[in-house]
Simulated assay, not measured.
Amino acid sequence: MVFQVTNGIKISVKTEFESTIYRNYKLHYIFSYRLSIENQSNDTVQLLRRNWKVFDSLNEIEDINGEGVIGEKPILKPKEKFTYKSHCILTSTIGAMKGYFEMINFTTTQNFEVKIPTFQLIVKGAIN
C-alpha cells in the first residue's frame, strides 16, 4: 500500500492483479485498486475532478480526466473517509498510475489539488 498527504487529505492506494482477458486477439491484464481519501484537515472538502496518468510498459501514457470518481463527488467532513474500488486494464504485465484530485475547501471556497501517489500495477512473477 502507498499513501501521501496533501493539504491535510490522505490518499491511500492498494492494488491487486485480478485476471487476464482477450480483446482484439491480444492478451490484456486487469488490475484493481482500492483508493481511500481521508480528510485529516479541520475543514469540510469535496472531490470535484480526477486526473490520472496511466503508464503501460507497452503503450503510451494515457491521460484520464473527468468529474468525480465512480459517479460520485464525495463531501468529506473532518476525520471522514471515502473508499472506492476501481480497475485498470493494461496490455502489459507492468504499469503504474498516478495523478491528482481537484477538490474544494468549503471554509475558504478555494479549489486545491491533492496528489495521488504513484502506485505500481505488476503481475506477480513479472519482476524477479
Rank of each mutant, 00 (worst) to 15 (best):
Y25N: 15
P78L: 06
W52M: 14
C88F: 03
L47S: 02
I89W: 01
K77Y: 09
E113A: 12
L35D: 01
L90Y: 01
D63K: 13
L90P: 00
I94H: 08
K115A: 15
F55L: 14
K73N: 15
E80I: 04
H28R: 15
E38D: 11
A96L: 03
K53N: 09
E60K: 13
I70S: 06
I94C: 07
T118A: 12
Y33K: 07
L76R: 08
T108F: 11
F112T: 08
Y100Q: 10
I75H: 01
D56T: 06
K14L: 10
T20A: 09
Y25F: 13
E67T: 09
I116G: 04
E18Q: 11
S86R: 03
R49K: 14
T107W: 01
N51F: 08
K77N: 11
I89D: 08
T20C: 05
V13N: 03
L76F: 02
I116K: 04
K79A: 13
V54W: 04
R50D: 08
D63P: 00
F17M: 12
E102M: 10
F101V: 06
G71I: 06
T91E: 15
E72G: 03
F106R: 10
L27C: 07
P74D: 08
S57H: 02
Y25G: 10
F31N: 10
D63M: 11
P117Q: 10
Y84V: 01
I70E: 08
E80H: 07
G95W: 04
I61K: 12
S57D: 11
T83M: 09
T83L: 09
H87T: 07
V45M: 09
I37F: 04
D43A: 13
K77I: 01
F119L: 08
K14H: 05
K79Q: 14
L27P: 00
I30P: 00
R23T: 12
K85G: 03
S92H: 03
P117A: 11
K79M: 12
H28L: 10
F55T: 09
L58D: 13
D43G: 04
E16G: 02
M97W: 02
R50H: 15
E38F: 09
E16F: 02
Q110P: 00
M103A: 11
K14M: 11
E113V: 03
I64Y: 09
Y33I: 06
I116Q: 04
F106N: 09
I37M: 10
F112R: 09
K81I: 12
A96R: 05
F119D: 02
Y84N: 02
H87M: 11
K81R: 15
E80M: 11
F112P: 00
G68R: 05
R23K: 14
K98C: 13
K26C: 06
R49N: 14
T107Y: 01
R34V: 07
S41D: 08
F101W: 12
Q40A: 03
S92Y: 02
P117F: 09
K81H: 01
E60T: 11
N65P: 00
L76S: 06
E62I: 13
I64R: 15
A96Y: 01
L48H: 03
S92M: 05
V54T: 14
G71T: 07
N59V: 01
K98L: 15
E18M: 12
E67Q: 11
I116V: 15
G99S: 12
L47K: 04
G68K: 03
L27Y: 01
K85V: 15
T91L: 14
H87P: 00
H28C: 13
G66S: 05
K98E: 15
S92F: 04
I30Q: 12
L90A: 02
K14Q: 14
